[in-house]
Amino acid sequence: MTEATYPQCRIVPQRFLKSDSAQRLLNAVVRVEGVRRMIINGPRLPATVPYGPARGKPNPHPDRKKIMVGDTEFELEVQVGGLILEVEEKGVIAEIRKVCDEVLTVPYTLDEGTFMKPVPTMSDYAKYGPDADPRLLGLADPRSRKGLVIIQGLK
């Protein structure tokens, strides 16, 4: 676990974002200097129908699609309801607010606080072991088989 603590903030739009708006917001936010880590939050959009009589059948969803952030392409698996960001220093949050004002077409709130888990849980220990990289903590669902996405192409 790292000793240093970094400021964190959370962007919560008043409406769920469609994939296009989410892509626009993410691209604007990652270009702000000093963003260390980021989580995209929201209700999950499963690839197959999870339960009911149609269980297991494919679930085409217009918002579950590949998006491009920086030079990195990844699949959006949630309907974007919020972003949690960890930044290098407090001044970056003001920058993020400015970017949100420009990009978001719906009202939003930007809170400062602690939103990522600071210490590993039992599940994290089981998944990543005793010498886990502290930067991984709280970034991905430990039950998920997919890992993190490293955004590239910003320089």
């Binding site: 769920f16 974002l17 129908v49 999870p50 217009p62 309907q79 309801g81």
Partner: peptide, 17 residues
């Protein structure tokens, strides 16, 4: 979806759309 925020276009969230 009944207690969630609406989407940008005003539609209620539906996992199966």
């Amino acid at each position: 979806g009944h207690s969630l925020r609406l989407a940008e276009d005003g539609m209620m969230f539906d996992m199966l759309q």
